[in-house]
């Protein structure tokens, strides 16, 4: 294997390592972000229900 072939071969594994690492971390952040915003929506809805009940009394 020539020097260039060796670097090209290693670069495939380097690219795979960096891609998997960042795709996984970004996916985790995105999924966490969407869960937090859903939670905020639910909390707002709950606050509305509580407020409505309070005004009915």
């Amino acid at each position: 294997m020539t020097e260039i072939e060796r670097v090209v071969d290693a670069s495939r594994y380097v690219a795979a390592a960096y891609s998997i690492l960042w795709v996984a971390l970004v996916a985790y952040v995105v999924s966490l972000g969407s869960r937090v915003s859903r939670l905020q929506r639910e909390l707002a809805l709950l606050a509305e229900v509580v407020q409505r009940r309070g005004s009915e009394k």
Binding site: R6, V14, L21
Partner: peptide, 15 residues
């Protein structure tokens, strides 16, 4: 012999 795979080290060890 060039060791390009060593580039993985900069994130593998911190992780």
């Amino acid at each position: 012999i060039l060791n390009f795979a060593q580039k993985i080290f900069y994130f593998h060890v911190p992780v």
